[in-house]
Design a protein around this nucleic acid. Structure first.
Length: 670
RNA sequence: GCCGCCUUAGCUCAGUCGGCAGAGCGACGCACUCGUAAUGCGUAGGUCGACGGUUCGAUUCCGUCAGGCGGCUCCA
């Protein structure tokens, strides 16, 4: 007897003995880790049937790499249990770039533990254990896993072997068509370790490259991500098809760390977080302030041109406003606690005047609503676009504060647009174009859009209006021709949202602008306009921030450019370096001509030698280093050295100035 | 907020098995007058994050707090 299977993707029929498995088919190809049989990812030990469509899957395939990483997680868990046989196992899935495994252990892991575990993992990998799949009944599993409470919970919550539940990306243990255990069998056929797992796995631990994995860090996590559950200790690891790819990944991480905005901010003297002010509350130094001012000035100009009106509002307000807006119901936890003011008591301690609570504002919208509502509004005024660089304060939990990207005090480039329901679709479409255009001007040009839809458990407002707004957002998004992903249930309680995700220079995506439709606030504030027919109508309100927060946007650009801002944003655009002291006056004269054209130029007249000055200016990432010595001076010229080290000598002064001006005005990068 | 780690000169970091500390860079001064990423010499600069405790003695050990880092949760 024999069977015939079809090899994918070549489409080659292949004859095999009856009962053959995929491993037989690929026995000469060690790089094959698993197989895709009729579209389903399975172990190579899976028995094939006549007519199966079989595709080899290697670590170069994303699915294959995930299997490799998942198997590596098993090796980690085995190593942990070698050290601590009482360690209780949580879940251990593959993730972006690696894997993790959660453990309930008496003592958190230390960096020394990780080094020890890595050694043991290497030994396990080299021992060549086979991953052997075994189908079990629920009862058998429960007996075997008697001392693994978390695995028991998984069986229970996922319904065991008859689970029809969708496979969960995070939970690799259960969720297949049957409940399975994976035995690690050593070369003497002894089962040395076992884990509940739906698989699949690589054939043997030898298929995990022993020199291409690394344990990265530890973390405490809540079981099932719920803070009411017990805390487990997680170990994160990374694993790759080969040593070179591991090295490449580690290099990438080092590169990302080098351009961390917190580090660049200190190095380039842009901003700081003085401890005396408080966690998450930044101050901008002159150079950072200049960049920020350029960002803001350009934004202001574009907003003016696009029909926005500028408003200003205070930083604190009485509690009543946030009662009206609903913030105190929905968001009090994220707000700084109130200041209680103006209370008066008499001599006996009786309250004569109850006083008032004042809150720092976490959002600008309630204030803008009051501006809308300050007088009767006509349909002729709509869309009314109110814009403010509004500083807000949010009491972020201490563990989440993170440089400028997650601060407690920050400034939103916040606008609220009031329009009729009929105007909404066109307004949203224009808005999105405006936002994307502006982001491109700042140097970000690779985007995708994310549409966050209603979470029924956490929302207000009617089904129909949500539907209408969501569709309006969707069609505005689709009109951009960009990739659109949906984030089901990700919307805020008051309305659906589109966010723009922008890719930076090293391939990371950042959530930038958000555009959010709100039915709730116009209702709560009783906002109205008079329609053409004289009736009172409720406007639709759109919240939108382009930068999100200026601080955060600043941080993203800083990392995107690695501190080397394009000249229009560079705090110092030109540094003059004299070859010797004798050329300082000449450069100063050129500099004053440049200043007259609005160029930010400094002359380094210090006592350093010329190469040192060039080094300093290079490290400050100044776009143009303007050098002048005898030759340049005699020719009425200067020489430019650019950030990449390229050199252009003997440029006539007038041409040099034009060149800088041109680059600044065109917002080009150099 | 939770878990772990960390905090020594402006910055990056040594160091003290408990006897009050060092380097490089930076700053400042002097000399050098110099053509593309560090000229040389010198000077100043630290209540070793804060407060308590243990100790004859604490920067070092313990505790609390503040700030930071990596995760978790959160990101309206």
């Amino acid at each position: 007897m024999s069977i015939t299977v079809v090899l994918d993707p070549e489409g080659q029929p292949q004859e095999l003995p009856d009962g053959a498995d995929a491993a037989t088919l690929f026995r000469d190809r060690r790089e094959v880790l698993v197989a895709r049989v009729n579209g389903e990812l399975v172990d190579l030990a899976t028995t094939l049937n006549d007519g199966d469509l079989v595709e080899p899957v290697t670590a170069e395939d994303p699915d294959g790499l995930a299997v490799l990483r998942h198997s590596c997680a098993h090796v980690l868990a085995q190593a942990v249990q070698q050290v601590d046989p009482d360690a209780k196992l949580g879940i251990g899935p593959p993730i972006q770039d690696g894997f993790y495994y959660d453990f309930d252990v008496d003592r958190p892991f230390t960096p020394e533990d990780l080094a020890e575990l890595e050694k043991r993992m290497t030994a396990i990998i080299k021992s060549g254990q086979r991953f052997s799949r075994r189908v079990v009944t629920d009862d058998e599993a429960r007996t075997e896993l008697e001392f693994q409470p978390y695995k028991l919970l998984l069986i229970q919550s996922k319904g065991g072997s008859d689970a029809s539940a969708e496979p969960d990306s995070e939970i690799m243990e259960v969720g297949g068509s049957a409940l399975t255990m994976y035995d690690n069998v050593d070369r003497r056929d002894q089962t040395v370790w076992t884990d509940l797992c739906r698989g699949p796995h690589v054939p043997t631990t030898r298929h995990i490259p022993a020199n291409a994995f690394k344990l990265m860090r530890t973390a405490a996590v809540y079981w099932m991500s719920d803070e009411h559950n017990p805390q487990l200790q997680r170990i994160y690891g990374t694993a790759w098809p080969n040593k070179d790819q591991l090295r490449e990944h580690l290099t990438f991480l080092a590169e990302a760390a080098k351009r961390d905005h917190r580090r660049l901010g200190a190095e380039l003297d842009l901003f700081s977080f003085p401890e005396q002010i408080g966690s998450g509350l930044p101050v901008f130094h002159p150079k950072g302030g200049l960049i920020r001012k350029e960002l803001e000035d350009y934004s202001r100009r574009r907003h003016e041109e696009s029909g926005y009106e500028f408003v200003y509002s205070p930083h604190i307000t009485k509690a009543g406003l946030f009662e009206t807006s609903g913030h105190l119901d929905w968001y009090a936890e994220g707000m700084y606690p109130p200041m209680h003011l103006d209370a008066e008591t008499d001599g006996e301690g009786n309250v004569r005047k109850p006083g008032q609570d004042y809150y720092l504002k976490p959002m600008n919208c309630p204030m803008h609503n009051l501006i809308f509502d300050s007088r009767g509004r006509s349909y002729r005024e709509l869309p009314l676009r109110l814009f403010e660089f509004g500083s807000v304060y949010r009491y972020e939990k201490s563990g989440v504060v993170h440089g400028l990207t997650r601060a407690r005090g920050f400034t939103q480039d916040d606008a609220h647009i009031y329009c009729t329901p009929e105007q909404m679709p066109a307004e949203l479409a224009d808005l999105l174009s405006f936002v994307l255009d502006l982001l491109r001007d700042y140097g970000l040009d690779d985007f995708y859009l994310e549409l966050s839809t209603r979470d029924p458990a956490k929302s207000v407002g009617g089904e129909a209006e949500w539907e209408q707004a969501t569709e309006a957002l969707r069609s505005a998004a689709e009109a951009q021709g960009l990739e659109l992903v949906t984030d089901p249930g990700g919307a805020a309680f008051y309305g659906p949202k589109i966010s723009v995700q922008a890719k930076d220079a090293i391939g990371r995506y950042w959530q930038m602008s958000t555009i959010q439709v709100d039915f709730q606030l116009p209702e709560r504030f009783g906002l109205e306009y008079t329609a053409a027919d004289g009736s009172r109508q409720r406007p639709v309100m759109i919240h939108r921030a382009l930068f999100g927060s200026i601080e955060r946007f600043f941080a993203v650009l800083l990392e995107h450019y690695n501190g080397a801002f394009p000249p229009w944003l560079a705090p110092v655009q030109v540094v003059g370096v004299p070859v010797s002291d004798a050329h300082v006056d000449y450069l100063a004269e050129v500099a004053s001509q440049m200043r007259a054209r609005g160029i930010r130029v400094e002359i380094d007249s210090g006592s350093d030698r010329m190469p040192k000055k060039i080094r300093n200016a290079t490290r400050a990432k100044v776009p143009f280093i303007m050098i002048a010595g005898d030759e340049d001076q005699a020719a009425g010229a200067v020489s430019f050295r650019m950030r990449d080290g390229t050199q252009d000598n003997g440029i006539p002064v007038a041409d040099a100035i034009e060149r800088v001006v041109e680059v600044i005005e065109s917002k080009a990068q150099v």
